[in-house]
Simulated assay, not measured.
Amino acid sequence: MAETDIFNPLDWQTSLDFNPNPAYMSELEPGSNSQILRPRLGGWFSRDLTNTGHSFSLQWNNLPLSIVQRIKQFYHSYKDGYFTLIDIDGGGRHYVGRFTNVPKSVQTANGKYSIQGLTFEEYPTARMVQYPSDFDNDGHSLYVADDNLRPRVALMQGAWAIQISPTAPAGSTASMPSALEAYDAAPVAGTDWAQMGYVGWGFSMTFRLGATLGVIDLYLDNVLLVSGLNLSSGAVTQLNAPAGTSPNGSTSLTVEVIDVPLDSHRIKIMANAASGAGKGILFPPVTYIY
């Protein structure tokens, strides 16, 4: 049953005679996905090399025997698979993974047991019942250039340039990564493209709209999600799952892609054949969930 098997369901009272949620002081640790290097001279360089998720170091104190049995059952049943753990106090976010070490129980009193140091680790590429979707609180900004103004967007084809977005706040300068966008003033349809990578779940991008802009296609991991996004009008020719769009008045359009499993992902923007002569295309900052 995989992701649909939930260790600590919200309605546990209807099927269990004990509360399966772990005790307080259980630690949540994000994965270390980046290799960070510093040369003899100069600043730091980093690159994502793995797609590790979060891990929990869990503990239960003074448990009835029934929950000890449930923990051991989930450990043995999902050695080669995964199940869902819900962070009840952390906004109810779902984590899909498995216990990675043998649960060891200690009897603390008559009919009471404790388990400490049991590790739950997320399983990359796993399906989920409920994917992370809170861009306001779980979202992280990924600008087209880093603080050293090195491009994060791989400018692979076309005359792309990093520039200040016309919609940036007044007083913005080229030294402010949050104010920048990647822009191709004269794209070749089906040829000019740029991409950016990240490790995590879904992402969101807000495109400015304007009369001088053309039409783009948006891909995730080389799968076409949005076909014919007209940056002049905000019209879209075709949306493929799991992408969705929402207009922000007549000045911008937000694309949200939510139902994406944990992995190393690549977002690609390509000039569409309907772009038209003299129409530019752009790659804005990305908000992604990890």
Rank of each mutant, 00 (worst) to 15 (best):
R150Q: 09
L28E: 12
L37P: 10
L118I: 03
V236E: 04
R266W: 09
T191I: 11
Y198L: 01
P124E: 01
M205V: 01
R38H: 09
A271W: 10
H140W: 11
I67R: 11
V144L: 06
N101A: 03
I36Q: 15
W44D: 14
Y219F: 12
G202W: 05
Y198W: 01
V260N: 06
P64T: 12
Y131W: 04
S172F: 06
F18V: 04
F18T: 05
Q157E: 09
L225N: 00
S66A: 13
A186K: 02
P151K: 05
A271Q: 11
P9Y: 11
A243C: 08
D134L: 13
W44F: 15
K112Y: 13
L220A: 00
S232P: 04
S178G: 10
R38A: 11
G234M: 01
Y78V: 10
D217T: 04
E3P: 13
Q238Y: 04
M196N: 00
S77Y: 08
R98K: 08
S114I: 06
E122D: 04
H265R: 01
T237C: 08
L253D: 01
Y143I: 06
V257E: 00
Y290Q: 14
W44N: 14
P64E: 12
S34Y: 12
L180W: 00
T167D: 14
G117F: 05
S77A: 14
G228F: 11
G53L: 03
G228L: 05
A109C: 10
V96A: 08
D134V: 04
N51P: 08
G111I: 03
V257M: 03
A168T: 11
S26V: 05
Y288S: 06
L41K: 15
S165A: 09
A277K: 07
S114V: 07
D221R: 02
A241F: 10
A277F: 15
F7M: 13
S66Y: 07
P9E: 07
N62W: 06
L149C: 03
R70Q: 14
R266A: 09
A235L: 12
G90R: 12
A159T: 15
I267P: 00
D87W: 07
L218V: 06
T167S: 15
V106S: 13
Y219E: 00
P166H: 06
G92F: 08
G111Q: 07
S165C: 07
P151A: 05
M128I: 05
S141L: 12
Q238H: 07
L142F: 04
S141D: 14
G280M: 02
W60V: 05
N240C: 02
R150L: 12
T206V: 01
A182N: 00
Y75H: 08
P22A: 15
I71H: 05
P103K: 09
Y123M: 13
I164W: 12
K112F: 07
R127V: 09
G234D: 00
G214K: 01
E122L: 06
M205E: 06
I36N: 15
